[in-house]
Write a protein that binds this DNA or RNA. Structure first.
Length: 281
DNA sequence: ATTATATCCTGATCGC
DNA sequence: TGCGATCAGGATATAA
């Protein structure tokens, strides 16, 4: 864990992908016996909660930074239902094989299935549940960086003539979806691009480097089950391993793994950015 | 229209 | 030892 106040893991694309992949085989095909929401913040301002009791879970996958859970119709001819869970800062979806007897701290919701229980634990209470009538309705506005839809032409279109810094641009969920503060820094380092560069002013080769680095970093993070600093745990309650592979994030003052210069930290959009001023131009 | 800032929330840490 | 201030950040609302 890093220096300074309460550095935490952020469930970004690789962490959410990890949770969804591990959760799917545990709960797909299972029937919901009961959903209990314990935190008022999860319920307020979103209208009536749909009835999920009796539905079967038909699909679990990542959608942007959300875990998307598909439920069958409650009766023949009825409408299906989709739940998009956003973990935000500290949310966790934890699968337990048996019904829990012990009281867990920060437990915000529990969904009892016929074979176990899915717990939503979220100390900081930023996480959200959103209900949708279809998977399409739950799709985010931005393009998934791992989707084949992200062609060089599409990336050009997304970057456009944006005057924002590259770091700020990468965090925008209405362009690319799924990147957060950790992977934005890591991707820019891998692409050898300064976080201060204007997003709309990259040369074609630089855009190519950005595209390649984005894909490479995310796939490698997924292969390592994401990054854990202190809070993030996957659906089985285990930690990821990518924190050992971070090149710049939370490594201020340490040598750049590429050129050995000291890694710098700056603040952009009220968020920390870590970068190497020598090899990121 | 785009871009920047304040806000939500809690736990860990820091300084006195 | 205690206690208040500070910091972390995803997304949204609001401001510029």
């Amino acid at each position: 864990m890093g220096r300074g106040g309460g550095r935490e893991p952020l469930p970004e694309l690789p962490e959410v992908e990890t949770v969804a992949r591990q959760l799917a085989p545990c709960i797909v095909g299972r029937r919901v016996e009961r959903l209990v929401v314990l935190d008022r913040l999860l319920r307020d301002g979103r209208g009536r909660w749909p009835q999920v009791t009796g539905r079967a879970i038909v699909e679990v996958r990542r959608s942007g930074k959300r875990v998307l859970i598909g439920f069958s119709a409650r009766r023949a001819g009825g409408a299906p239902l989709w739940l998009a869970v956003h973990l935000r800062m500290t949310g966790r979806l934890l699968w337990v094989e048996r019904r829990e007897r012990q009281v867990r701290e920060h437990l915000r919701a529990r969904m009892r299935l016929d074979c176990g229980e899915l717990l939503f634990i979220d100390p900081r209470r930023f996480g959200t549940f959103d209900w949708h009538p279809s998977a399409e309705a739950a799709e985010p506005a931005g393009v998934d960086p791992l989707s084949p839809a992200l062609t060089p032409a599409r990336l050009d279109e997304l970057l456009g003539a944006s005057a924002q810094s590259l770091k700020a641009w990468l965090l925008r969920q209405d362009r690319l979806v799924g990147l957060g503060n950790i992977y934005a820094s890591e991707i820019l380092h891998a692409a050898r691009l300064s976080p201060f560069r204007g997003a709309g002013a990259l040369t074609p080769p630089e855009r190519g480097r950005l595209a390649v680095a984005t894909r490479r970093i995310l796939l490698r993070a997924i292969a390592n089950c994401g990054t854990t600093f202190s809070d993030f745990q996957d659906a089985r309650g285990r930690e990821g391993a990518y924190q050992h592979l971070l090149a710049v994030y939370d490594r201020e003052g340490e040598p750049c793994p590429r050129c050995r210069a000291r890694i710098a930290r700056t603040v952009q959009q009220q968020r920390s950015t870590f970068y190497c001023a020598r090899c990121q131009r």
